[in-house]
Structure formats: C-alpha cells, structure tokens
C-alpha cells in the first residue's frame, strides 16, 4: 500500500499571498474520511489544503504540471497564475491488494549478486473511485471559493510513496504476520516495527502512527524484560 495522491489547483482573480508561510498542510478536512457506500468505494480520504505556489513552481506548474507557456504569452500567463493559486490535495486510504507487493527482482542484483527488491503497485478500482470523488469535491470547493479555473492531476506519480503493509498486525496467525505488540507469529523473538505492520494505509501521512506503534511495541519489550 502507499498513499495515492491526487491534486486540484484553483486559480483566482486576486492576489492571495499564499506563497508565504509553511509549505505543508494549512487546512485539513476529513469530511469524506469514513466509509459511505453511496459514494461507490470503501474507506475515504483527507483533503489537505496547501499554500500557493512558489515563483518557480508557478512557472513549471507545480504538482499539476501545466507549465506556463513560453514565448510572447509567457509574462501575461505567469502574471495570471503567480500568487493566485490554492491547491487541494486528496490523500486516499489504500487497501491491501494481492497484486501490490514487494518481492525479489528476478534479474536485478547488487554488486554482490543479491537480488534487489522489486516494488509492484497498481492503483485499485476502489482507490481510483476514491480519488475521482475527491477531485470532484475539490473542484466544487475551489469554484465555491471563487476560482476562475481549476486544473487537476488525477494521480501524482512522484507523491505519496509511503510504503506500508505486507506484514500486517493482527491476532490471528492465519491472517496476519505480527501480533498486537509487533512480535512475529511464526518466528520467536522477531519484531517488526515500521509501516509494514499497518493494515490499511490510512488517509493521512503515516509517521505519527508509526511512531506511536513503535512506542507501544517498545513498552511491550520493556514489560517482558522486567
């Protein structure tokens, strides 16, 4: 699993000052985070409203990638975009899929002949519907806020690569790899403490959750030692 990311960017008539301030998430909404089957998919996503584009990103199109045209149209087009954008990111909750996995590459090896890991990922139909729903809502939000145009990137290839899953946590050894305290069901005294124990990806960046799980596992280690 990873975090499929889509992005919608509105362009407004007036300067917004959005290129000032931190680059991260300014506003978060989890209005569509929980499952509502009437939407056509399970689980949901977070909206992350980001600040405006920097001078360079304004020219090159940022994550949407629609570069300002070069030539005599350039200055006018750039002036209509710089300092006039709001970006809404949609970060979806990915589910485990049989085809999405990490295995050993049959051909690629390192300098010692050890096979390299191979990451296989294909966006699931559930995640595709989730992102499409998010893009449609983001368009509504941006237009309601006064955007004169909205452009979208349906899937950021360079974003959201938070690798999670493949060693899920659970009580049943038949359906999980580690127990509730990170211990492998099948290998004594082997702990797994990272994003691979997550059961779904959640619709938020995973670091805080991974840290909390790590502290929980560490507490269990200490308790068993004493």
């Amino acid at each position: 699993m990873f975090h499929p990311y889509a992005m919608a960017r509105g362009v407004f008539e007036r300067p917004l000052g959005g290129h000032r301030g931190p680059i991260g998430c300014s506003i978060i909404s989890q209005e569509f985070y929980e499952t509502d089957l009437s939407r056509g998919f399970v689980r949901g996503y977070s909206f992350q409203v980001a600040r405006g584009l920097s001078p360079i990103a304004s020219a090159n199109g940022g994550s949407v990638g629609d570069r300002v045209p070069w030539g005599r149209e350039h200055r006018r087009a750039y002036g209509e975009r710089f300092d006039r954008t709001i970006t809404v990111a949609i970060i979806g909750e990915d589910l485990p899929e049989p085809d999405n996995r990490v295995d050993l590459d049959p051909a690629l090896t390192d300098g010692h002949g050890i096979p390299a890991p191979r990451v296989s990922y294909r966006l699931s139909e559930n995640s595709r519907r989730m992102l499409d729903h998010g893009i449609a809502r983001a368009r509504e939000v941006l237009h309601a806020a006064g955007a004169r145009e909205v452009a979208a990137n349906p899937l950021l290839r360079a974003g959201g690569w938070h690798l999670m899953g493949t060693a899920r946590m659970g009580r049943d050894p038949a359906t999980s790899v580690v127990d509730a305290e990170g211990r492998c069901h099948d290998v004594p005294n082997l702990y797994i403490v990272d994003g691979s124990v997550m059961v779904t990806s959640a619709g938020v960046n995973p670091t805080s959750t991974i840290q909390a799980v790590a502290l929980h596992v560490a507490d269990g280690m200490i308790r068993r030692r004493s």
Binding site: P55, I56, N60, R67, W70
Partner: peptide
C-alpha cells in the same frame, strides 16, 4: 524550458 524557468524565477 524547465531550466530556463528555474534560472529566471530563482
């Protein structure tokens, strides 16, 4: 184009 934009706007 990309490097021209990068250079100009930085």
């Amino acid at each position: 184009v990309r490097h021209t934009y990068d250079g100009f706007y930085s």
